[in-house]
């Protein structure tokens, strides 16, 4: 059996699944000099899913004692960072194209992560129990989407007025 070995306590539980909530159809500009972090800690990706706006740079710091080798063969972004150790950060990558980027580690095959590249600055992630708050939205009529995974995207129409707070529950029958 060619399995890698980890020391006691090294393997953390995977990050809790969350949904990404984003506003579709709102006017947006490309992200400025924004940097997001998708670290590896406890032989897991630190985020189950990391939402970013197109044009964002993402860094991939390794916080473990062993090598990691993050790669993705997704159509949205294909890359392979090679092997790198703690403190030896590989080059940050800029994500220019909206879509789903599935992340893996070539060495630790249980590791799974997602970067969701969105064409909007209006997004957030839910808590583990599914609650969210999305602030600073422009007035108008849009679709609010909840991305759970590539096959499960819920959608709800929403009309926003200046200064108004809207409460919304997604209906799981309203899939994309």
């Amino acid at each position: 059996m060619g399995r890698y070995q980890l020391k006691a306590g090294q393997l953390a539980a995977p990050a809790k699944p969350v949904a990404v909530i984003y506003l579709e159809g709102a006017p947006s500009a490309r992200a400025g000099n924004t940097v997001s972090i998708m670290g590896q800690r406890g032989y897991q990706f630190e985020h189950h899913v990391l939402p970013i706006q197109t044009g964002t740079r993402v860094e991939f710091p390794n916080h473990d004692e062993d090598y990691h080798n993050v790669f993705s063969l997704s159509k949205t972004k294909r890359f392979d960072l090679g092997r790198y150790r703690m403190g030896e950060n590989p080059p940050a990558l800029t994500f220019d194209k909206p879509g789903v980027v599935r992340l893996y580690c070539e060495i630790h095959q249980h590791m799974r992560g997602v970067i969701l590249v969105l064409d909007t600055p209006y997004f957030t992630t839910t808590t583990a129990d599914g609650k969210f708050r999305l602030k600073g939205l422009p007035a108008g009529s849009y679709n609010l989407k909840a991305w759970l995974d590539e096959k499960t995207i819920l959608s709800a129409p929403v009309t926003l007025k200046a200064g108004q707070t809207v409460r919304l529950n997604f209906d799981s029958s309203n899939r994309k």
């Binding site: 059996m1 060619g2 070995q5 980890l6 020391k7 006691a8 306590g9």
Partner: peptide
């Protein structure tokens, strides 16, 4: 025995 990689005892047919 300690639930980690410090010691593993294995019996069977293996590489």
């Amino acid at each position: 025995p300690w639930g980690d990689s410090m010691l593993n005892v294995q019996v069977g047919k293996f590489a």
